[in-house]
Nucleic acid binder design. Structure first.
Length: 882
RNA sequence: AGGCACGUAGCUCAGUGGGAGAGCACCACCUUGACACGGUGGGGGUCGGCGGUUCAAUCCCGCCCGUGCCUACCA
């Protein structure tokens, strides 16, 4: 029935947010999935949580706009298509740029709808009429506009800098796209002889082939062993070039011999050092990762091969002192896992510092808050150490950089419209930069580009800033921080008020899910096996703040069991509502339960008023939890309400009236049952939209309205304190009798006699049938004095409940039970007495605490005394029967 | 190397400065007319370890141990 309801919601336009809608706006933007991607559990979790919020806000009466869309995912998509090409034995270079890009568009057309279809299957209530794609014309226009403005402001500039280079992709990568992975490398120690023939320095390196690009050897200026030699020259092994010995304080005196080779063209430290000291930079690499002519005899070799050859030649030349195992961390391409080579290259950069300051400020001022709060530290850490962002990529799939180089003066013209002449020299010989922008550049604009920026649209006016962004912590740097910077810079306001960081999903053993590990759970399979609502409920119920989710089959079975329980409760209700109740209010629109109770014309029992009161409480607690992004709490509250209160107590109690012969009582209970169930359905709808709608539509009097149109029921008047107490007492007494039965091992069907004090006369009159039915007792008797020795006795609900038992075997059991009870009471009593005997406690603890302890002491003492008396009587009786 | 989490019942996890809870699992009893994906009852924990603050610590502080993640230029 899932697709049927989804289609019905779409047809009714329930997900569409109109700018004409007078209700208060509430918006969020989807983290756009890769256009060619497929739904994984991370998507399922994040989009379920967003859908929970979106539906919740709709039920609360907001004009909710959930902006959907997909990301072109530059390098990721290009790599996928290149792999497909490789399987056919081709390369993108052979195909040529135009044909290759056409091929990617074709790929997008083929697979682009899948992820959207899957999100719909999950129930996501996105405003699909507004769906966007990062490379559609509107968003492309926004990208150009931003690039041009930032360039004009001097924040975007060209520079030759040491960058991460992926030889396979043949493109530059940002630091974020080049994560470090552990590699079991070797540390080689190499002799660099002094030119004057007097001695040598030993130098350690993990990348011996880079010595071909060395332009110096450095020691620490205060190093007593080496500092005096600074200024002498060394003979570069294998190539024979003369390189100077220099001093720089970046050298770690403790490492190796305290001397380090300097390769400014291929190492970040050395690059900085080379700039400081004005050392020459030698690039030894072609873009494809093979060595170039600067590597002399090694030219043409790939890095890995060159390393082997260099080591062999060093050994042959007697310059290799030794080598040893050296596990370390090496940057790899995030997308193709190739080892990244640092090299100097001219690229477009975005100067981040001026943007980072405001982005930190707004979070400090709590204009945007992270949930859980701890992630703000991650956010700050990155922004505090911000470095320029390489935004150009030597790829073909993405936004082409709107910059044209003049064939005449060589300068760049940057413009939103394709220029016809150079803005510097007026020449007409312009060629657009071949490069495209980092895919995250367009993502950074997502919260406003999707609403029509740079035009001043009503959508922007209404829906920006968005209420919340929900995402994983892995893209706080990639995306969240950059959206914040761009939003502040171009919109003058934060892009979102809240940032919710969802948990990471792991397998049942806590291991990361990965294809290679084979432990991936496919959400689509779960949805068909257990139902989408079961998956959604399970994910929500596990989404506690600050902890990863361990997901296994047993968790999913729990979610499914809950859906089934709700379904069965609904079956009971439908069986007992017969033709529908005139005047029952389930489907009468917002605030269906109407004005504060008591509702005229509906007498209603205590049980009826109680369940509606608990519904109100559950709704309030759920909403407080959702507003604080405490999803697991919301799920737990609803679980407890539906299972522990509605099913375990109310439905059982309702059977009395429903199966009784008082038509008025029966009708009142039917009405309440329907209201309570409908209320539960509304409360659960954000978590499990399909089954709740299915049940709701089966209830009488629906009038074709959907849950989201009806909204949450308005709360009724508070249940008076004495009524709450009376219900608590009933629950306690029933539980008490059940406990006694259980502990004495009474078979089912054996009805016991129960005596309550005469002060409980009214209580017994009102709840006798409930006691009989739920605790399986005979009609309770009233008596002032205990009914004799042969009784199990317990305190419950302010009464002394006496369960009559005539069999002496039970008497002996009861003695043991009472002894146990007494032991527990005396232990508690001693503990409290100890506290009250402590002068420090009396003097320093707050007065209400002390009072509470005194009261507790009195209560325990009285109870213990009662137990002692009963015990004495029982022992006496036991003696008599023996 | 630094940072951030986490360590509570067999398992998965909530939680709080005034003698700890849930779900699942377990045990016992129950084919009671919504539901055995169920009902009722029950057992089970020196809240990772050691110190400190406090009248009082599972909770706050310090150190240690274990686990995970992130950042980072140790050649």
């Amino acid at each position: 029935m899932e697709s049927r309801w989804y289609a019905a919601w779409l047809e009714r336009g329930l997900f569409h947010a109109s700018v004409e809608d007078p209700r208060p706006p509430w918006s969020l933007v989807i983290p756009p999935p890769n256009v060619t991607g497929s739904l994984h559990l991370g998507h399922a979790l994040n989009n379920t949580l967003q859908d929970v919020l979106a539906r919740h806000k709709r039920l609360q009466g907001y004009n909710v706009c959930w902006m959907p869309g997909t990301d072109h995912a530059g390098i990721a998509t290009q790599v996928v298509v290149e792999r497909e090409l490789a399987r056919e034995g081709g390369t993108r270079q052979e195909l040529g740029r135009e044909a290759f890009v056409a091929r990617v568009w074709e790929w997008k057309a083929r697979s682009g709808a899948r992820i959207v279809t899957q999100l719909k299957a999950l129930g996501c209530s996105c405003d699909w009429q507004r769906e966007r794609f990062t490379m559609d014309s509107g968003l492309s226009r926004a990208v150009r506009e931003v690039f041009v403005r930032l360039h004009r402001e001097g924040l975007i500039y060209r520079d030759a800098f040491l960058v991460n280079w992926c030889p396979r992709c043949s493109t530059v990568l940002s630091d974020l796209e080049a994560p470090h992975r552990p590699v079991s490398g070797r540390l080689y120690v190499i002799r660099y002889p002094f030119v004057d023939g007097d001695g040598a320095l030993e130098i350690a390196t993990t990348r011996p082939e880079t010595l071909l690009g060395d332009t110096a050897v450095a020691v620490h200026p205060d190093d007593e062993r080496h500092a005096r030699w600074v200024g002498r020259s060394l003979r570069l092994p294998l190539l024979g070039r003369e390189i100077p010995l220099v001093a720089d304080s970046f050298v770690d005196r403790e490492f190796g011999s305290g001397a380090v080779k300097v390769t400014p063209g291929h190492d970040p430290n050395d690059f900085e050092c080379g700039r400081r000291l004005g050392l020459p930079m030698v690039n030894i690499l072609h873009p494809d990762g093979r060595l170039n002519e600067n590597a002399g005899p090694y030219a043409g070799l790939p890095v890995a091969e060159a390393r082997v050859r260099v080591v062999a030649d060093l050994e042959a030349a007697g310059l290799l002192v030794g080598s040893r195992e050296h596990p370390h961390e090496v940057p790899h391409c995030d997308r193709c896992d190739t080892v990244v080579e640092p090299l100097v290259s001219e690229q477009w950069f975005l100067h981040m510092e001026p943007l980072a300051g405001p982005a930190m400020q707004v979070v400090r001022e709590e204009r945007t808050r992270f949930h859980p709060r701890q992630w703000e530290k991650t956010y700050f850490h990155w922004l505090e150490n911000i470095r320029p962002w390489v935004i150009s990529r030597q790829l073909w799939w993405g936004h082409r950089i709107p910059a044209w180089r003049c064939g005449g003066c060589g300068d760049w013209t940057v413009a939103t419209q394709d220029p016809s002449q150079c803005e510097h020299c007026g020449a007409g010989d312009l060629a657009q930069d071949e490069d495209v922008l980092d895919t995250w550049f367009s993502s950074a604009l997502w919260p406003f580009s999707t609403f029509g920026w740079p035009d001043a649209t009503p959508e922007l006016e209404l829906f920006y800033p968005t209420a919340v962004l929900s995402t994983g912590h892995d893209i706080i740097f990639f995306w969240v921080a950059r959206m914040m910077m761009m939003g502040l810079h171009f919109m003058g306001d934060v892009p979102f008020r809240d940032v919710y960081i969802h948990p990471l999903i792991r397998d049942a053993e806590g291991k990361k899910m990965s294809k290679s590990r084979g432990n991936v759970i496919d959400p689509i399979e779960v949805m068909s096996a257990h139902g989408t609502d079961a998956l959604r409920y399970t994910l929500v119920s596990l989404s506690a703040q600050g902890r990863d989710i361990k997901l296994g089959e047993s968790q999913l079975e729990g979610g499914r069991a809950f859906v089934t329980k709700l379904w069965n409760a609904a079956r009971f209700a439908l069986l007992n509502l017969d033709a529908g109740i005139p005047g029952a209010s389930a489907a009468q629109g917002r605030g269906a339960r109407g004005e504060p109770q008591p509702r005229e014309g509906q007498p209603g029992s205590l049980y009826d008023r109680w369940i509606l009161h608990r519904l109100d409480r559950a709704l309030a607690e759920t909403h407080a939890a959702l507003d604080a992004y405490r999803f697991n709490d919301a799920a737990a509250v609803l679980y407890h309400f539906v299972w522990g209160e509605l099913c375990d107590w109310y439905i059982e109690l309702a059977k009395l009236a429903l199966q009784g012969d008082d038509p008025a009582a029966r009708q009142a209970t039917q009405s309440t049952l329907q209201d309570a169930l409908a209320g539960a359905l509304a409360a659960l709808h954000p978590l499990m939209p399909f089954v709740t709608e299915e049940i709701f539509q089966a209830l009488p009097g629906g009038n074709g309205r959907f849950l989201m149109e009806r909204g949450y029921p308005a709360p009724g008047a508070a249940l008076p304190e004495p009524e709450i107490r009376e219900m608590d007492e009933l629950v306690e007494v029933i539980a008490c009798i059940r406990r006694v039965r259980g502990e004495l091992g009474l078979p089912a069907g054996v009805r016991v006699r129960v005596t309550l004090p005469t002060t409980a006369r009214g209580f017994v009159e009102r709840h006798g049938p409930a006691l009989c039915a739920l605790a399986q007792v005979e009609t309770p008797q009233l008596a002032d004095a205990p009914p004799g020795a042969s009784a199990a006795v317990a305190q419950a609900g302010g009464f002394v409940v006496q369960v009559a038992l005539d069999d002496p075997a039970f008497l002996a059991d009861e003695v043991r039970r009472l002894e146990k009870t007494l032991g527990r009471l005396e232990k508690d009593l001693a503990f409290v007495a100890g506290k009250l005997a402590n002068d420090q406690f009396l003097a320093r603890a707050r007065a209400e605490i002390v009072n509470a302890e005194r009261e507790k002491h009195g209560r325990l003492a009285a109870e213990a005394e009662g137990v002692r008396e009963r015990l004495a009587r029982l022992r006496h009786a036991l003696g008599a029967t023996a």
